[in-house]
Amino acid sequence: MPRWPDIKIGQRILLGFGFAAFLTLLVAAVSIYYLRGVGQELTSIAEQDQLLLTNALELQVAVEQESDGVRGYLLSGDQSFLEPFTTGQSHYSEAATELEGLVESQENRQLLSDINTLHHEFLKIAEEEITLHEQGFPQSAIFLWQKQGNEIKGDLHASLTGFIERQEGVISQHAQEAQSQQNQALVIALILVVVAWVAGMAGGIWISRSITRPIKSLVSATQAISKGDLTTRTSMSGTDELTTLGSAMNQMVRDLAQSRETTENLTAQLRDLVGTLEQRVAERTHELERLEELGRAIIDAPHDASTLP
């Protein structure tokens, strides 16, 4: 696996974009998964609450259907009114059975048990009055139904109403909890976005510094070289473009330093040679001056001899 300094600059930039894209997709996936899970859970709770409330209302409707059937039969003696009574019992049984599977809290189970007990007493009184009517005592059956039947029906209706109101309160509470969970999910999603943003910024800064740091080193070395300091070297490791450029610059500076040293040596040698030549010229000039004086002395010697007395 290549080291980071060995990765080309273009590849680093691509890796940076890839890292940012990966973080974005990861945050989006996690947020969608979490929000979807919360949404499914809330939907399931809402559906269960609505189903529970619907079945509770079905109990109330079934009781009214049973009551209307009994009252119609007792008042008219028409056997067709017993059909709604029987149908109401079937509807009540189905709704009660489904409610038993939906109710979870012990308090609600107790309320449902009390409602079923009252309903059982309600059916018992209804069947007694129907039997009394069939035995030829319709007025007594009607009187007893209006007294006992309506009383137990009132208790049953009150219990069902209380149970329904309780479930409506539970639904309202669940709605508030659902809103709270949705807000919490949004907060978590925002936190994930912020974390991804911070991680992306940190990765971007790290990649940027991995590129700008060697560039600054090259700029500093170039400025020092421009001022004549040929001892400056760039210290970079790796095989990327900037490291290659730094190595080429170091080689160039070494070549310049070697050229300067060679030039200085040649200049020193030339200076020595010029000094030697100047010394020889001076010596030769001095020698010529002596010869000139000697020549003048030789020329002047006969003239001086002829002037002697």
Rank of each mutant, 00 (worst) to 15 (best):
G72A: 09
Y73T: 09
L75N: 10
S76E: 10
G77P: 05
G77S: 05
D78A: 15
D78T: 07
D78L: 11
Q79R: 12
S80V: 14
S80C: 03
F81H: 13
F81A: 11
L82W: 04
L82F: 05
E83K: 12
P84E: 01
P84D: 01
F85M: 14
T86Q: 13
T86A: 15
T86L: 12
T87L: 09
T87N: 07
T87W: 00
T87C: 00
H91D: 15
H91C: 03
S93M: 08
S93E: 14
S93H: 11
E94F: 12
A95H: 06
A96C: 03
A96Q: 05
T97F: 04
E98K: 10
E98A: 12
L99S: 04
L99Y: 03
E100C: 01
E100F: 06
G101M: 10
G101N: 14
G101Y: 08
L102M: 09
V103P: 06
V103Q: 07
Q106I: 14
Q106P: 08
E107M: 09
E107S: 13
Q110Y: 08
L111W: 02
L112S: 01
L112Y: 02
L112P: 02
D114M: 01
N116I: 04
T117N: 09
L118C: 04
L118K: 06
H119M: 07
H120T: 13
H120V: 05
H120I: 02
H120L: 10
E121D: 15
E121V: 04
E121F: 02
F122C: 02
F122S: 00
L123R: 11
K124P: 00
K124G: 10
K124C: 02
I125M: 04
A126F: 04
E128T: 07
E128P: 00
E128D: 12
E129V: 07
E129N: 10
